[in-house]
């Protein structure tokens, strides 16, 4: 009756990891939250905060002997949208904010505008230079223009590394924490401990399955950001992978710690939120951590997600090498290492 394991038999660590991977890929919701959601978020936010070409400034040209000439001169300018109006209509349009500047019919003209409005001041400069040029003034020189709408400085460029960090945190904490608490609640952990499975294998498989999922998860988001949004990766791809890996390990440690004691999903959810919500707010996912007052900075900078986001942004946007990232990476490693050690001490197997 006893038979030796066949050639296709896999080791316990492989089997435990495989079980986790199978569970996850057979869970459509998990696939959505891990793979689709971050891409969707990047797409929507990228769209909402996309850089638009500056709108032309509406100005009124009062009808008169010079009206036609002035209208023609201003129409040639991209940043100005002139309207030819009667005097009374022009004043009314200015009062109602439909135009930002009125050019009188006099010669030379009088510019009527509100100098406290930046748009009005901009219109005055553009209108004046266009009319002067039309009247025969020559430009002393023609300046070059460096328009800063190139990839790497837009909001979406800031956003994508933050979303990657957020995703690494969420899946690390939930992926490990949720599955362990479910296994504890259903007596599966106890059953595994009752079998000759090594505890290091049981927990190691959780970590391994996390790292396996990291590849498609981070890969999908980065590929989408690169192809669809033009978000650059200026630093080494290898370093980016390394930083993501360290981030995933650190948050797996935190997930393990959060899941070390709770017996129910509800209990675990509360703890997870307690850990994650502050980082959603303070760790610079959607806006820079610089916006928090100096007194909060020590707290903000000590959070593992802040360190991960900073490191990801440095590699992707600034092309940073390993050396400048060492403080962030050390902080992440410390969070991960300490969490693992404490989690193993506290871990409830039954």
């Amino acid at each position: 009756m006893p038979e030796h394991a066949g050639d296709d038999a896999r080791g316990p660590l492989t089997e435990l990891t495989l079980a986790r991977v199978r569970e996850l890929v057979r869970e459509p919701e998990a696939v959505f939250w891990v793979f689709i959601f971050p891409i969707l978020l990047a797409a929507i936010l990228g769209l909402a905060f996309r850089s638009r070409p500056p709108e032309a400034l509406p100005v009124a040209v009062v009808a008169g002997p010079h009206g036609g000439v002035r209208l023609a001169a201003l129409s040639a300018q991209a940043e100005i949208k002139p309207h030819l109006l009667a005097e009374a209509k022009a004043r009314q349009a200015l009062a109602r904010g439909k135009v930002v500047l009125v050019i009188s019919a006099d010669d030379p003209p009088v510019y009527a505008y509100d100098p406290t409005q930046p748009e009005s001041r901009a219109a005055r400069l553009a209108v004046d230079s266009a009319l002067q040029r039309a009247a025969g003034r020559a430009d002393a020189f023609i300046p070059g223009h460096a328009e800063l709408t190139e990839p790497g400085t837009r909001y979406v460029d800031f956003l994508v590394p933050g979303l990657l960090g957020m995703n690494l945190m969420g899946t690390g904490m939930w992926g490990i924490g949720f599955s362990l608490v479910v296994a504890r609640q259903g007596n599966l952990l106890k059953r595994l401990v009752a079998s000759p499975a090594r505890r290091s294998h049981i927990l190691g498989a959780q970590l391994l399955s996390r790292l396996i999922f990291l590849v498609p998860e981070a890969g999908a988001l980065l590929l989408f950001a690169w192809l669809a949004l033009g978000v650059p990766v200026r630093g080494s791809l290898l370093l980016l992978v390394g930083v993501s890996l360290l981030g995933a390990v650190a948050f797996s440690g935190l997930g393990l710690l959060t899941a070390a004691r709770p017996r129910t999903i509800e209990g675990a959810s509360g703890l997870m939120n307690l850990v994650m919500v502050p980082m959603w707010i303070f760790s610079g996912i959607f806006f820079s951590t610089e916006r928090f007052p100096a007194v909060m900075q020590p707290f903000v900078q000590a959070l593992p997600l802040t360190a991960l986001n900073d490191a990801l942004r440095a590699v992707m946007l600034e092309g940073a090498g390993l050396a400048p990232l060492l403080p962030e990476l050390a902080l992440l490693a410390a969070w991960g290492g300490i969490s693992f050690v404490v989690a193993l001490k506290l871990f409830r197997w039954q």
């Binding site: 006893p2 080791g11 316990p12 259903g186 000759p196």
Partner: peptide, 30 residues
């Protein structure tokens, strides 16, 4: 060992659960 109640992972197939537990033993049943 059979515990009073064990909830095996819902999404695993019967064969996969057995294969998992089989991997813990150096010898045993097919």
């Amino acid at each position: 060992i059979q515990l009073q109640e064990t909830k095996f992972p819902d999404k695993l197939r019967v064969r996969e659960v057995l294969s998992l537990f089989r991997s813990f033993y150096p010898r045993g049943l097919a």
